[in-house]
């Protein structure tokens, strides 16, 4: 009798212990969820503003499946292709999702995010994005920080940054932006955006018109092109990401067009453009991807080296008049008229 009672008490204690342990883990999980929610809230609240964030937000404002042609790349993309001109020419809905300094690795992960809500028929990839973002360079940080915190970003960070500690730091944008508590205007603007009180311009197409004309500063920038460090690179790393982009488009039935925005003669010499162009052509051919290299189409488009009136802003980027010509040509090309 006593043994039976002891056994019963022991069973009851065991059950209590089990319930208590289960309860503890449930409570811990709830607490962890609260901490993560707070973390995400603070991330959004303190996000450092900038072109990458603004472009990301503008993209998010687009209704789902509302883009026919998507342009991806970096400043060479968003200073070159004007969706308004293209839409006027071929009647398609175009959005320029270029991000400042963006390289092909981050671009690939940003494209994955975009394709969650959009189903474009055509993607134009500007080829200046051939490069890698493994250094902790401010431009790359801004692009990475603009990404939504989630599994896609985590994967991007761990694939792009060889140093795992860098990867973790890049994933947690609060690591850099927490000091924004000192800047009330940033908090106010982010809060307004979160509350839906400050929506980006719904007509923003992603195009960034550079409307400079000839000036001493422009000429100086042209001369300074010799010292520009950035150059597109086609190596195993960038080729691998390019193939991922190709596969992504192929799997989803998207037409992929690689395009090189025009840049000036000084800069072409600096980066040994003929060699790059040859590699790019070979790569596109091997992957069966269309290539439109505007550096080979100056005459057809109607732009000239050293024309800082109607073509170039400086050695690297077009001004808005140059962009208009290139955009028109590209739209016609997509229609099969070129």
């Amino acid at each position: 009798m006593r043994t039976a009672r002891n056994l019963s008490t022991s069973n009851s204690e065991d059950n209590n212990k089990k319930y208590w342990t289960a309860g503890y883990f449930v409570l811990s999980a709830i607490f962890l969820a609260l901490v993560i929610s707070m973390f995400l809230f603070l991330t959004a609240l303190l996000q450092t503003p900038g072109s990458a964030v603004e472009r990301k937000r503008a993209m998010e404002q687009r209704p789902a499946n509302s883009i026919d042609t998507l342009i991806i790349g970096n400043s060479h993309a968003y200073c070159t292709f004007d969706p308004a001109v293209m839409e006027q020419t071929n009647g398609e809905k175009v959005f320029n999702a270029g991000m400042p300094d963006q390289k092909i690795d981050i671009m690939y992960y940003n494209l994955l995010e975009t394709l969650k809500t959009q189903k474009p028929g055509t993607i134009i990839m500007e080829g200046f994005a051939f490069g890698r973002s493994d250094s902790v360079y401010q431009g790359y940080i801004a692009d990475m920080d603009a990404m939504d915190p989630g599994f896609n970003k985590l994967k991007a960070c761990f694939e792009i940054y060889p140093d795992k500690y860098d990867a973790v730091r890049m994933f947690i944008s609060l690591y850099r932006s927490h000091n924004n508590w000192k800047k009330p205007t940033i908090i106010k603007d982010n809060l307004k955006y979160m509350l839906g009180m400050d929506k980006p311009d719904k007509d923003f197409s992603g195009f960034y018109p550079l409307d400079s004309r000839m000036s001493d500063a422009t000429l100086q920038k042209y001369k300074d092109a010799e010292s520009i460090k950035f150059a597109p690179v086609i190596d195993d790393y960038t080729t691998d990401y390019f193939r991922r982009v190709v596969k992504l488009c192929h799997d989803r039935g998207i037409r992929l067009v690689v395009s090189m925005a025009p840049f000036n003669d000084v800069y072409q010499k600096k980066v040994n453009y003929p060699a790059f162009n040859q590699k790019l052509a070979e790569l596109c051919k091997s992957e069966d991807v269309e290539l439109v290299d505007f550096n080979m189409l100056y005459k057809q488009v109607g732009i000239e080296y050293g024309d800082f009136e109607d073509a170039f802003h400086h050695a690297q980027h077009l001004n808005k008049w140059g962009a208009e010509k290139v955009s028109k040509y590209m739209a016609e090309y997509l229609l099969g008229q070129k």
């Binding site: 901490v35 973390f39 603070l42 609060l174 850099r176 927490h178 000091n179 508590w181």
Partner: peptide
Amino acid sequence: IAVIILFGVYGD
């Protein structure tokens, strides 16, 4: 946790 995240000196 919030105080540490917000006002902590780290990452610079």
